[in-house]
Nucleic acid binder design. Structure first.
Lengths: 204, 204
DNA sequence: GTCTATACGTCGATAGAC
DNA sequence: GTCTATCGACGTATAGAC
């Protein structure tokens, strides 16, 4: 690679980085963060192990980036369900949001377990805090709207929002852990209904 | 000290270890896990830095142990409120449990933040999973009893229990983080009431 | 990107128990 | 006298500052 960035090298660099990230996410989706070995990622992305560090400061940074790109996608799905279609009642949107989140988590168990619960490097843990806040902000808006429409009882929206985020992750940790460990399926329907009822009762 | 463990040396060893742990917990209560330096703990416990490794395999192990002893205490408080006094209604016990948990968390902010939310070594994270399960088991019992008494609506107890654990930790993370960062107080009353209402609505 | 400061964990020496 | 717990300085890795 040349010593002055040109348009071409910049594009190449970005493509390589994206490729690397994609391989890393896939690896985490298969084996969790504990399976994310730099050499393995490099091999999949078809570059030398050492070159990984040309694109990411450290393994920590790579992990954090993997977490970010994977989580942003989930946050966006949740945002859509929660806030986009204003023709639906807030109650309905809350139920839909929970369903989408849980459904996706159960579908992509290993990745979701990695994102939500797997013990990981503090750097990733810090990102978790940030993105749980992002989820909470979405629910805060939904709850405020629900209160304005008098669908939900008066309540401190941000506290309830945080509580819902906690409810979602914690109620899925157990099932996800079991499913990942034993590679078995989850009683999806009952689980989702239980979480929906819990949250609905909590805010109304 | 003798070269074959006797009663006396055993006692000495245990006392040393306890002293070390106590110093470590105090340190974490003041500065969080990020402030837990081996040399500092050693100094407080009045032993040499190197000797710490005679009692704990590694810093990780020390951290994990600190987490355990501090958390077991909290779990026990929660267990008492939730399950001990059978003359109280389950509803009342649920409210009391939430109050105790939140009150103690807000009181000992720094320690609670460290135990609940601070980004830490994966070894400690693993312990978090274990003890959140311990909390969940307590709430599972309480909810089952509440359903039997027809105070709570029919629901999968273990899922609701996990949800309550998630609610408690997540709704306190924000306030604790703010309080720790700015060293300010928390609007205790409103916060606790909000969490209580949320959980009560969720299970009834 | 380099440089410094800091902290983990090890090791040889020492002192003191049996 | 033998053996071991403790000491504390040092090597090495790392993280944070400029």
């Amino acid at each position: 690679m040349p010593y002055r960035p040109t348009e071409k090298t910049r594009a190449h660099r970005e493509a390589q980085q994206k490729n690397l990230l994609k391989s890393a996410v896939k690896l985490v989706a298969e084996e969790g963060f504990k399976g994310l070995k730099v050499s393995k990622v490099a091999k999949r992305a078809d570059i030398a192990t050492g070159s990984v560090y040309k694109y990411f400061e450290s393994k920590q940074a790579l992990c954090a980036e993997v977490f970010k790109v994977a989580t942003i996608k989930e946050v966006e799905k949740v945002r859509q369900q929660a806030l986009e279609d204003k023709t639906l009642s807030c109650t309905q949107r809350l139920l839909n949001t929970i369903e989408i989140f849980a459904q996706r988590a159960i579908q992509g168990r290993r990745l979701s377990y990695a994102l939500i619960a797997e013990p990981v490097d503090p750097a990733v843990e810090t990102e978790r805090l940030i993105y749980r806040k992002a989820y909470a902000d979405i629910f805060t808006q939904l709850i405020e709207e629900g209160m304005a429409r008098e669908e939900f009882r008066p309540q401190p929206a941000s506290i309830s929002a945080a509580a819902i985020v906690g409810t979602l992750s914690e109620s899925l940790v157990g099932p996800l852990t079991t499913a990942v460990e034993s590679n078995r399926d989850i009683e999806t329907g009952d689980l989702i209904a239980a979480i929906q009822n819990f949250c609905l009762g909590a805010v109304t």
